[in-house]
Structure formats: C-alpha cells, structure tokens
Design a protein around this nucleic acid. Structure first.
Lengths: 331, 331
DNA sequence: TTGAAAGCGCTAACAA
DNA sequence: TTGTTAGCGCTTTCAA
C-alpha cells in the first residue's frame, strides 16, 4: 500500500490535517512545518488517493471521451486527431476515459466523470445527449451540429466546404458531377450532400440520383461505389468529376477509375474531404476540403474545461472554417 | 446528487447494509427484501458510487491503456486497432484510461488503475516498465518484446515476418533490395531490419548501407527516403526491390517511384508491413506482411484481466505469427 | 497556526 | 436474515 497523509503525519509529528493543509498549499501553515511535510511526502513517494478525495469533493478527476463508435466505421486518422487534440488540452488535469456508444451504455456510469466530450457522428446519438443532459452531465459535443438549450457545440463548416468543392468543379467546366457519400445516418454525410446539392442547384444543374452512391466512408466502399457508377454509365455518360465525402473513399474511387483506364484529371476529376495524410501521396495528388479536426477537438476540450470550472464560455457554439485544397486531381 | 444506498434503505425500511447485500446478490437476503430493494433502486435510477466502493475494496475499476506516443508518430490505424481490441475485451468491466508517455508521467497516478496494458514501441519505454513493476502495478506489455521476470508480453513475429518478405524477394530473383526503415529507436524498426539482414546474409548477399534509409514510419518519410535512394543510385544501380518497415512508408515510396517513371513491379518491387487498409488499393496493390494487431491487443487485454483476477495465465509470453501477403507490387 | 471530530458512500466483521 | 459499528483516505468545520 502506498503512503497516506496519516503516515506522513506520524513521521512529522503533526496531525493528518496539518499534512493535508501543507500538501494543498494552505497559507495557514508555517513554512517550517510545510517544508518538513513536503520533504517526508517526497521521501515516501506520496501520491494522494484521488478516490478518497473524490468522495469528499465530489470531483472525479476524469472526463469521458465518447465516440459514436470506436470500430473501423470511424476513420482512424479522424479518431487519432480527436484523441490527440483532447489529450493535449486535458491530460494534465484529468484521466481521459474512452468510450463508444455502440455496445450500449449500461456500463457507462456518467457519475464517474466530471464531464464528457462527445465526438458525435450521427443523429441517433441524440438519445445519449439528452440522457447525459438530463443527468446534469457537463457536456460538450463536437463534430456534429446539435441544437440544445445552452449546449456547447464545436463543429466544422461541412456544408460550406462541400459546396465550395463542387462549386469549384462547376466553375472549371465540369458538368456531370457524381457524389460518393458516407452512410446516410452520419450527419457529415447529410451535410456534405447538402453542400453538393446546393452548389449544383445554385448553378442550375439538376441532381441525378444515379450519380449519388453510398461509399460507407471506407476505402473499399469508395472503390465499390465508383465501380457501380462507372459500370452503370457505360452506355450513358460517365461523370466527368466525383466529389467524395472523405479522402478514404476518394482513394478507393481512384483505384476503380485506374482499373477502367480513365485518366485523372483529364477525363475525370476527383475531390475528397478532410485533408488526411494520404492526399499528397495518391497519384495524382488528391484535392480535398481541409477540416480542422484536431483544432475542433482542442476547442471542445478547452470549453469543457471552462464549463467544469464554472468559467464563462465565450463561444458556446462554434463553427470552424473548412478550406478547399486544390491538387493535381482536378485540372 | 444521485441516490445512495441509504436513500434506498430509508424508503425500503431496512438498513443500508441490507440494501448493499441485496444489490450485490448476497444469498442471505430474502427474495422479498431483495425484490423490494431492487425495485426501489431501479425507480431511483441508483448507480453505485464506485469511488466509495473503490476506497473500501481497493479496486479502481479502471485500467490504463498506455502508448509510447499518441501523436502522429503512432500510425492511426495501429492505434485504432489496439484500442479497439482492448475495448472489446475490457470495456464491460473497466473504464479505459488512455495515456501516452511522451509528455511525462508526473500526472499518471498508477494507483488510479487496477492494471496497465502498455502498447510499447521503443526501448526507452523500459524505464516506465521498471517503474510500474517496482510499484507492483499489474502490467501487460504488448507489441514490443520485453524480458522481465514473469512479465506478460504479447508480440508479433516481426523478425520472421520481415525475413520472409525479403526471402521471397530473393527467391524471385531480386538482387538489390533496399530497406526503408522506421526510426532507429523503435523496436519494430530494429526487428524488421534484423529480419531483412538475416535473409540477405542467409543468401550470401552483402548488406549495403546506402540501401538502408530512415523513413520515419510516415508516408512523407517513405517518400523522402525513396527519393534519396533513387537519386543516389542514379549513376550506380537502382535497387530492383524495396522492403518498407510499414505500409505507410511503402505508400510514400510508391509515389516517389511513380514520379521518376519506374514501373512497379517490372522494374522495381515493393513490400510493406502490417497489412493496413490501404494495401489493396494502391496501384499496384501492395504486398505486405500481415501483423495481427487487434488480436495482439485482445490477447494482452485478456491476460491483464486474468492477472487482475488472480487467474492462471496460460502463456505469459506469446509471439503471434505474421504472414506474408503477396499482391501485385511484386512479380 | 494546529488539532479533533464528523462524514463523503460503501463494505467487512461481528452481533443480534 | 438483518442490523450495528467501524473504517477506507481525504477534506470541511469548528474549536483550541
């Protein structure tokens, strides 16, 4: 067993309360006493028992980091960027407890954490949000736009980003623009499709249902979807551009395009979303919409910290800008 | 504040001990009492205060999941596979607390967890391992071979995997085989280089230092390293094959090869390591050594569970097999 | 400036 | 079968 304040007290010849005060930097302790206590604490390698403190203070020194799913449906690069952003901000003060919503929440005891940062990806997450809010959980939702009374919500401009990509294609004389989208239930899919459609409609281009496919947010899914698009349009017109709802799908689509011998970008252009590491290294390099994932996570974590510490939150609802990055995959 | 056993006791008209017993399934409680208690507990949405229980039982209901680094030096797909494998096994019983070693350990209070599963990547991790072991922490180390008295250690056969890849190249008449390796401090780099050298020596092929470059385990690094190799060997002989210590670097190297107009696999072959998602979708598809990352994590998590629960560990030291996967990037 | 007492929510040990 | 008491390690409150 590790040392307790009583052990220190015994050695120092003071009461355990004096030790507690010295350790917590109270100014009602003489310097002499404090020094003695701190020295003994260091010698014994004293570590406070946070569960005990927790019981008295009703603080948990942990925060929950909740994902819609931890499995492959969440892109690894996205997950890492989120975790990393949160870790940088909060790891000094809190244990970060990672959870997913997929395997039920019976085992997620919200009372074990001081707050939750929720990386939300789909509308069905709402039930968890409402549940957590009803319990009075300090909650910050990032990634997905959620409207609740005074809920802190940090997102990126998905609609605007998608629209800017498609608008760029239109302005560069691409006419027949396909969309390979993520799963319909994911909010990012919905938003990016909305941006896509808006850009088309703004330019009086009609929306063709056959040019919109589900690529499951995965490389394989993007590949499969592109295959279908190319196959279906064999006797009709092949699209001259594809906007993909993430970079992974764009990468898969690129493979499918290669396989049928079409040239990128001269015969078909392609744009992805997120600006993940692979973009600069596909052949040709992949144009994309840059999404500030790590920054989003960091802002969310900072807001949660402020919320827990009863500070004023300047911008409870933030939407970070996305940015079109043009590379060789469009002409 | 949420309900406590005393609240339930008051309503049920019994002592808080009876409530505790009923809730914990003791058989010294009449069915009638138990039912009454459980019903009230459900009505009050009772959740046990685990910090309080923790104080008495000296259990933490949390385990630490420690990475050498959470930042980009750890491949996202690797990190996700590890987390996911551990989560599947342990999330029902424990909160998973994610940590990295990079930003120091002052804030990692080992007494807050019942055990640690350490995804170790480099030799400098040893100091943490020894520190944790000295504290009596229940510890399982995965990914990197570590020899300590009765330490549980789950790894993959990195050396054998690398050797099998290089041996395959030699058997298929590749003569001049380069190595793009990860950072020198990472154990996987050391192991894979050892496998590479062993295969060469076994076949009486001398090791050429100029053909071994550091690709930093990243796409960019692999690209840069390949550039250097191709540039340096302009007037000499260009290698006819490259073995890369992970798939990301192989992906970057592929780009560099493309840029100088060399054909894969007719002019130069390439093999990666891990079998991550991208391999099937590069052009040409990337041969690789498959490493069972998620399985490794799961086995480690199971062993930690057994260790915490004082069960017998069948195989404290496991080395999982790796497997050569040949695709179009070699002829 | 320091100490004694009480209690956070829970379980172990013993008594009834 | 149930209840009483004590105590896990800490902080708050009040007294000295």
């Amino acid at each position: 067993m590790s040392a307790t304040i009583k052990d220190i007290a015994k050695i120092a010849g003071v009461s355990h309360m004096t030790v507690s005060r010295a350790l917590n930097g109270s100014d009602t302790v003489t310097n002499e006493t404090r020094d003695k206590v701190l020295k003994i604490a260091a010698e014994l390698n004293y570590r406070p028992n946070l569960q005990a403190r927790s019981l008295v203070m009703n603080r948990k020194y942990s925060i929950g980091v909740v994902f819609s799913t931890l499995s492959s449906a969440t892109a690894p690069s996205f997950m890492q960027a989120c975790l990393n952003g949160i870790y940088q901000t909060l790891a000094k003060d809190y244990n970060l407890v990672v959870k997913d919503l997929e395997r039920g929440l019976e085992h997620f005891n919200l009372s074990r954490v001081d707050g939750v940062i929720f990386v939300s990806q789909q509308e069905s997450d709402d039930s968890f949000i409402d549940f957590a809010l009803a319990q009075g959980t300090k909650l910050v939702v990032i990634n997905r736009r959620v409207e609740r009374e005074s809920l802190i919500n940090v997102t990126a401009d998905e609609i605007g980003g998608a629209a800017s990509a498609v608008r760029f294609l239109i302005e560069h004389n691409y006419q027949r623009i396909a969309l390979i989208n993520g799963p319909a239930k994911i909010q990012s899919s919905i938003d990016r499709q909305q941006g896509y459609q808006q850009a088309l409609l703004d330019n009086n281009i009609s929306i063709v249902a056959d040019l919109i496919k589900d690529g499951k947010f995965s490389i394989q899914g993007g590949y499969d979807a592109m295959k279908v698009i190319l196959h279906e349009s064999r006797d009709g017109q092949v699209p001259d551009a594809v906007f993909c709802s993430n970079d992974e799908m764009a990468f898969g689509a690129l493979k499918a395009i290669n396989e049928v011998g079409l040239k990128v970008p001269s015969e078909i252009a392609i744009i992805g979303f997120n600006d993940s590491d692979i973009c600069q290294f596909t052949s040709p390099a992949l144009s994309t919409v840059k999404k500030p994932i790590e920054e989003m996570a960091r802002f969310g974590a900072e807001a949660l910290f402020a919320l827990i510490n009863q500070e004023v939150i300047d911008n409870p609802v933030q939407q970070l800008a996305t940015e079109l990055v043009i590379r060789a995959s469009v002409r």
